[in-house]
């Protein structure tokens, strides 16, 4: 997997969320795949993700997990940060986005409207997305889900 040795992924859990298990599993998986993982861990404010990207401008993506149902609230500052020219790389969000699973499609729509580039429905979607060729246009969300 040496072809991805130079690829940095910034990883973390949304600001209001202290759940570490999926975050550590993703860190483990991406390291095994050869990514350099900058793991900001649980309870990470969006501005900290932006700082990490500023420190690692070659970052391939920012991957934000959220399992406590507050994903939309925790991502609300994304348009402001993007407007200020921060967080230029793709932002990927996954997890249990809402307290009631029935609200998920609406939360997904809101996250995409905030500027999130990919909303993943399952952990297994992450590696294929990150391993896709960076220049080969972004993998459409629908393809990833299928």
């Amino acid at each position: 997997m040496s072809h991805v040795d130079d690829r940095v992924v910034v990883l973390g859990v949304a600001e209001s969320d202290a759940h570490a298990v999926a975050n550590r599993l993703i860190e483990f998986q991406l390291r095994e795949l050869g990514f350099a993982v900058v793991n900001l861990g649980v309870c990470t404010p969006l501005a900290d993700f932006a700082d990490a990207v500023a420190a690692h401008p070659q970052a391939r993506a920012v991957v934000i997990g959220s399992v406590n149902g507050h994903a939309v609230a925790d991502l609300r500052d994304l348009p402001a940060l993007r407007g200020a020219g921060r967080l230029p790389c793709p932002v990927v969000v996954g997890g249990n986005l809402t307290i009631d699973p029935a609200d998920r499609p609406e939360a997904k729509r809101q996250l995409l409207a905030l500027g999130v580039d990919h909303v993943l429905d399952d952990l297994t979607e992450l590696a294929p997305l990150l391993l896709a060729p960076p220049d080969g246009a972004q993998v459409p969300d629908e393809v990833v889900r299928a």
Binding site: A18, A20, V21, R24, L25, E27, F28, G41, V42
Partner: peptide, 14 residues
């Protein structure tokens, strides 16, 4: 410690 929430354990155990 697997799945550590803290940065002060490496969580490299799976």
């Amino acid at each position: 410690v697997p799945f550590s929430a803290s940065r002060n354990a490496r969580a490299a155990v799976l």
